[in-house]
């Protein structure tokens, strides 16, 4: 299962005053707060960790269909010193891959490491007709919601489906879909 989250850094800067009292404590574990406050660019670290938690929550939500707001219970951990992160939630460990630049931070979470390595990523402008735009960019494929309301990529020729996840914020939109096929309808 997969989930993703994109943060438009300019938008986040406009919308969130994370320096306010209580903000960090409500969302981040002590270890995460230290990472943020000791970082060269605290706000970039903050949105990186946030996007990981949110991506993992979305993957978890796909598994259980349960909605809740508990970012602190999704903890970012660094198993090695190589810069990679995992997000732990209860007994589940999510594998994370992130992209960082001056404009946005994007994180992807999957349960299987092999799935993470085969995820397809497509960045687009955040606009209402993004699904049509996707079909235009990938002729023969379309982005649709399945019966449960979850996004999937469908190959028109074969009818085969891939689990997908869409995230948008500010100017940016990311569509990711699994390299493996979705078996259940």
């Amino acid at each position: 299962m997969l989930g993703n989250d994109i943060v438009d850094l300019e938008q986040a800067h406009r919308d969130s005053k994370w320096e306010r009292k209580g903000y960090l404590e409500k969302i981040f574990t002590l270890t995460e707060q230290e990472l943020i406050l000791n970082a060269e660019k605290p706000s970039a670290m903050l949105w990186l960790l946030w996007s990981m938690k949110e991506a993992a929550y979305k993957a978890e939500n796909r598994l259980t269909n349960e909605r809740f707001y508990a970012p602190k219970r999704f903890s970012c951990i660094q198993p090695a010193m190589d810069g990679t992160f995992n997000v732990k939630y209860r007994d589940r460990l999510f594998h994370i891959s992130s992209a960082i630049n001056e404009q946005y931070i994007h994180s992807i979470a999957t349960l299987d490491l092999s799935e993470l390595q085969r995820v397809h990523i497509n960045y687009q402008q955040n606009q209402p007709d993004y699904a049509q735009e996707f079909s235009y960019l990938y002729p023969g494929y379309s982005l649709k919601k399945d019966k449960a309301g979850l996004p999937a990529i469908i190959n028109h020729q074969t009818g085969m489906k891939h689990a997908a996840s869409v995230s948008h914020h500010g100017q940016y939109l990311a569509i990711i879909y699994s390299g493996s096929l979705l078996l259940k309808d």
């Binding site: 969130s16 306010r20 209580g22 409500k26």
Partner: peptide, 13 residues
């Protein structure tokens, strides 16, 4: 935005 839900909680407090 889900990052603003915490602001709502802090403002309510």
């Amino acid at each position: 935005n889900s990052a603003n839900l915490v602001d709502v909680v802090l403002d309510i407090e």
